[in-house]
């Protein structure tokens, strides 16, 4: 039996932030576990006060932004899943 836990996308609203931001992903068996795991994995340094979770499989994404015809738009599903880590303000060299 495959016991791989499904993948979830995690969105966190920080104290200063206006909206929930994608912070990363994790594995969990259901939404409740995903929220709890998100607290432990993504708010170890008090990064957030509100957590949203969504199954990666349920996230639909637009096609790649590039207009170049060589990069043909594929389907609207994320290829496995996107990991849109926000750029922390502290990191200046990006």
């Amino acid at each position: 039996m495959s016991s791989e836990w499904p993948l979830w996308e995690i969105f966190i609203r920080s104290q200063h932030g206006l909206a929930h931001k994608h912070v990363g992903s994790l594995h969990a068996v259901d939404a409740q576990m995903a929220i709890r795991n998100a607290r432990d994995v993504y708010t170890r340094r008090n990064e957030g006060i509100s957590i949203w979770v969504a199954r990666s499989a349920d996230i639909h994404a637009s096609s790649p932004g590039d207009k170049d015809a060589l990069f043909e738009p594929s389907n609207d599903k994320v290829y496995r899943h996107p990991t849109f880590f926000p750029m922390p303000d502290e990191v200046k060299h990006i």
Binding site: R45, F85, M87, P88, V91, I94
Partner: peptide, 13 residues
């Protein structure tokens, strides 16, 4: 992109 963003988080922590 995903690797770079993961590294940013790692470096910060």
């Amino acid at each position: 992109g995903p690797y770079a963003r993961a590294m940013i988080r790692v470096c910060k922590e």
